[in-house]
Amino acid sequence: MKLTKTFDKALWVFHVNSGSCNGCDIEIVAALTPRYDVERFGIKLVGSPRHADVLLFTGPVTRKMKERVLRVIDQTPEPKVVMVVGNCGSTTGVFYDSYAIDGPIDTLLPPGTHIVYVTGCPVRPENLINGVKEAWLYLEKLRGDDK
């Protein structure tokens, strides 16, 4: 799929909490506010997955949230990048032996989905910005005219 040049300079992000402890979620908001201010890079948090280019997932996916998580992935138009934020999102981390966890998220994603892992418990805002950079690089490649 060919993308226009403006696309990768204005990534719209939708955030899904799939049972996280709120630590990463607060750090995501911290990244949006003046100290880190990712909006200066054109990154914007949006209110609907249908508007989003990047999905931010936090948390290890609880049993009750699994169905909702899959629905959100389905609702997001292609091309999309999934960013898995935090250790428990990537590997279920400290919650590894729970009966109520259906994750980690990457086991639920349809094959071929591009995933960017952002580690940390919780993630640092600097690391989040780095993760978005990774997503950019991928989307730029899709555009096909990168240097």
Partner: peptide
């Protein structure tokens, strides 16, 4: 609920 676009929990 249960999915929120800002930062609160489900």
């Amino acid at each position: 609920g249960p999915i929120h676009p800002a930062f609160k929990e489900p």
